[in-house]
């Protein structure tokens, strides 16, 4: 049962990341995903200090806002400050991340939040961290419930607004010209990326979540030439990574999240080989 819950959690994270990651990869914004996953740290810590729990709605909203702020700052320094995008990303997220590090270390005495937990996560604890209803009955593991809600939100967002996401990703100028604001969809997408990162960091950590955003999407990008297929394939790769990753970590007796990302890297390698051999 625990194995099932861990694999399920991993799959929920991986599929959420793969769907959003596909758009990040196509928008050439992979590094913005990286930036967001780090810069939400101060948001997580501040929300934790205010509310006192790691999985509150407020924390997800707060960190989500910080994620959008990060994207905004990156754009701002790039456009108004005439800084190259990569430099702008580098300055913004490291600075916010550093702020988070100071906050974490300052409150290091607190047992519930530390650097390790934020950077690396621990998916093995998911099955024992339960969510209770008002009567005190356990309804299920917290992470599974939160991540299911996040994934449902992403699925609805992508299905309902598929054509807006498609057009603003492919040709933002044309989208603007016909009255579809590319900036609005950019920030909505980044808001969802922040939200997913926050919801996922406890299970896989702020660093490995980047791999899940980029690797399955990149692998799918290599072997398909259709956006819908790319979304489905990257999700499938995410689930396979979660499943095989769990067994790899069982065999090696190592980090589950690490093993999942290793598998997703291996899938990318295989897809790359396939495209090379095809030529």
């Amino acid at each position: 049962m625990d194995a099932f819950i861990i694999i399920l959690t991993g799959s929920l994270v991986a599929v959420s990341c793969a769907l959003l990651g596909s758009f990040l990869v196509l928008r050439k914004m992979a590094m913005i995903g990286d930036a967001i996953s780090h810069s939400v740290l101060p948001g997580i810590v501040i929300a934790f200090l205010l509310v006192g729990s790691l999985q509150s709605v407020w924390m997800i909203i707060g960190a989500g806002l910080i994620g959008v702020l990060t994207t905004f700052l990156i754009e701002f320094f790039h456009q108004k400050g005439k800084l190259q995008t990569d430099a702008s990303i580098g300055v913004t997220f490291t600075w916010l991340f550093a702020l988070g590090v100071i906050l974490v270390t300052y409150y290091a005495g607190n047992a519930h939040i530390d650097q390790d937990c934020i950077l690396h996560g621990e998916i093995a604890y998911v099955p024992i961290d339960l969510m209770y209803d008002d009567a005190g009955n356990a309804i299920g593991p917290k992470a599974v419930i939160v991540l299911s809600v996040v994934l449902a939100l992403i699925l609805v967002f992508i299905t309902v607004f598929y054509k807006e996401l498609f057009i603003t990703t492919f040709d933002p100028d044309f989208a603007n010209a016909i009255g579809i604001s590319s900036a609005r969809w950019h920030y909505l997408l980044m808001g969802l990326v922040s939200l997913t990162t926050v919801a996922s960091f406890e299970s896989v950590g702020a660093i490995l979540v980047v791999a899940l955003l980029i690797a399955p999407a990149s692998a799918a990008y290599l072997i398909t030439r259709d956006l819908k297929w790319m979304l489905m394939l990257s999700s499938l790769f995410g689930i396979v990574s979660s499943f095989l990753g769990y067994w790899l970590s069982y065999l090696l007796d190592g980090s589950i999240a690490g093993a999942m990302v290793t598998i997703s890297g291996a899938i990318f390698g295989i897809c790359y080989l396939v495209t090379v051999l095809k030529k």
Binding site: L26, F166, F170, D171, T224, D226, L227, M230
Partner: peptide, 10 residues
């Protein structure tokens, strides 16, 4: 040239 023609679309 303003768009990426490697985009996965028909």
């Amino acid at each position: 040239e303003s768009v990426d023609w490697d985009f996965p679309a028909s």
